[in-house]
């Protein structure tokens, strides 16, 4: 499938109907997820702040998932020179940065009433901040180099080196003593979270992923058109 979609024309044909369809699925899932978020009973320890979990945790998942996609696109671009891989990387980075920013801000707004602080330099929070800096670095590198091929190569190398941060984020709560609580969904022995909270969390997480999928396709389409426009402009000038 990836091989087939690496062809820009085939991707444009596929994404013309897939992007809006996945976008509609995202809107439905997020709407139902939000509604459930305000229906579930408040937590006996966290009180009403538990509702923040349903936007914070999906944003944190997406921050990492987007970076894994960025790493995959960078690998494909560097090794296989797929024509769409660089476009996929460029399209992915701003979305990943947005989700990472949301994970940090909503986490901070949750931390203040629960931990008594907006921020702590603990392993989980610091490694997520490093993730945001990696996204910003990737975008800055793309923007700083005029030659698009060289820019894509340099940014891809940065993205691949930054992949090491993903297991650090995931296992930071196990490897070090952190203020952040340990994993409560993806953990050995199954989720420790009550089923009442798992449903809205799952819907919001899948909704965020669908939203990312839809917007990613829209942004890759935008990149394909940008390259085509640049080519046409060069032809017109020549």
């Amino acid at each position: 499938m990836f091989q087939a979609l690496a062809n820009p024309q085939r991707f444009m044909d596929f994404s013309r109907w897939a992007a809006p369809l996945v976008g509609i699925i995202a809107v439905i899932l997020i709407t139902v997820g939000l509604w459930l978020s305000f229906i579930v009973p408040e937590d006996y320890q966290m009180g009403d702040t538990v509702r923040m979990v349903f936007i914070h945790v999906p944003a944190a998942y997406m921050a990492m998932f987007c970076y894994a996609c960025l790493g995959g696109a960078s690998f494909m671009g560097l090794v296989f020179r797929h024509s769409l891989a660089d476009a996929a990387g460029r399209a992915c980075a701003p979305l990943g940065a947005g989700f990472t920013f949301l994970a940090l801000v909503t986490g901070s707004l949750w931390g203040r009433p629960m931990w008594g602080t907006w921020w702590a330099w603990d392993a989980r929070m610091t490694s997520v901040l490093v993730l945001l800096l990696l996204y910003i670095g990737y975008m800055a590198l793309q923007a700083a180099i005029d030659d698009e091929v060289k820019a894509a190569r340099a940014a891809s190398i940065l993205a691949l080196v930054g992949l090491i941060n993903l297991p650090i984020i995931k296992f930071s709560v196990d490897w070090w003593n952190t203020l952040h609580q340990p994993a409560s969904v993806f953990r050995a022995g199954g989720p420790s979270m009550p089923p009442d909270y798992l449903w809205p969390l799952a819907l919001m997480a899948i909704g965020y992923m669908a939203l990312f999928g839809s917007l990613w396709m829209v942004r890759v389409r935008s990149e394909v058109w940008r390259k085509r426009a640049n080519g046409l402009a060069l032809q017109a000038a020549g």
Binding site: W35, F38, I39, G47, D48, T49, R51, M52, L109, P113
Partner: peptide, 12 residues
């Protein structure tokens, strides 16, 4: 629907 987060509204 519970749209009254009480004292946590300033954060929620």
């Amino acid at each position: 629907l519970d749209l009254d987060p009480g004292k946590y509204g300033a954060f929620l």
